[in-house]
């Protein structure tokens, strides 16, 4: 019963009252997807053969989720391309789940905690909040992109058109056969974002909130340059996914890794919070 009250409080205070964040996310990603629309306009003039079929909503989404193909540093003349759009998406969503839990604890949450007499309830409620808030923000981003696509005449499908790998510069000799459906890639992105949010929450019990944010973003960013398997961001990028490439990173492995990382973070955080000093100063 007490846990339900915590959840209800976090849902009301941390989700319903944060509707502006979700709305802002939708608008930002709508505008991001609109960039793709401009590219299509240019393409329709310069390379009309690419656009033999109308673009899909998946085409709009993959412009954000493509990331960058694995960088081969040892190759002569190979230069690293920073995936700015992908990086922005990551930074934004992780930032939206950074502040609420500890700010709430320094404020009214302290009273709730003392009245409820359970640190475990508080911690579990905040972990669920991270999962829910990340899901809502991610859904708002997808909705923004989908709306943009539909507004500009895209087909409501998550299958990606054949010209996309060339346009986004991740074409390869070993492409997977079409159709390329990105629903699993989206699911892997959501799972890994939730896991990253949980790692961030746990880390913020040890170090300053800003540092935990920078650490998680830095870790995910490292995966853009270093294609090592433990750098899980590889599983978040369409340009490295088995959906498009053979061999490529299997989104299901990414989901399994996210599940493992999320559970480990929740367990470590729960242990840490069980003796965490609650001071009004945010660390």
């Amino acid at each position: 019963m007490m846990f339900y009250k915590f959840l209800r409080f976090d849902f009301k205070n941390g989700i319903l009252h944060q509707w502006k964040t979700f709305a802002c996310t939708g608008v930002l990603f709508f505008l991001g997807a609109a960039l793709h629309c401009l590219t299509l306009r240019v393409l329709s003039i310069t390379r009309p053969e690419y656009l033999q079929t109308p673009p899909t909503v998946g085409d709009y989404m993959i412009t954000v989720f493509a990331g960058v193909r694995a960088h081969a540093a040892q190759e002569m003349g190979s230069s690293f391309e920073m995936p700015f759009l992908w990086l922005f998406y990551l930074c934004w969503i992780l930032f939206t789940v950074l502040r609420y839990p500890l700010e709430e604890l320094a404020g009214v949450g302290k009273h709730l905690l003392v009245l409820s007499r359970s640190r475990t309830h508080w911690w579990c409620s905040k972990c669920i909040w991270v999962c829910a808030s990340t899901t809502f923000t991610f859904a708002a981003a997808l909705l923004g992109m989908a709306l943009c696509g539909v507004c500009f005449g895209a087909r409501p499908s998550l299958q990606v058109s054949g010209y996309i790998p060339t346009l986004l510069n991740f074409t390869s000799e070993h492409m997977a056969p079409e159709p390329w459906d990105i629903s699993l890639l989206l699911l892997a992105n959501l799972a890994l974002l939730i896991a990253a949010g949980l790692v961030q929450l746990t880390l913020s019990l040890y170090i300053k909130q800003l540092y935990s944010y920078l650490f998680v973003v830095g870790y995910l960013l490292a995966g853009t340059y270093l294609p090592n398997k433990p750098l899980l961001s590889s599983y978040m990028m369409g340009a490295r996914s088995s959906i498009f490439l053979q061999p490529g990173n299997d989104p299901l492995v990414g989901i399994a890794a996210a599940l493992w990382l999320g559970c480990i973070s929740v367990a470590i955080g729960w242990y840490r919070f069980s003796y965490y000093d609650i001071l009004d100063v945010l660390n």
Binding site: G107, V108, K110, H111, L113, V114, R117, S118, R119, D280
Partner: peptide
């Protein structure tokens, strides 16, 4: 984990 029955005002009051 916490006192059974406690009322608290520490430093600044904090509400929604």
């Amino acid at each position: 984990a916490f006192p059974q029955d406690v009322g608290l005002l520490i430093e600044n009051p904090a509400f929604l």
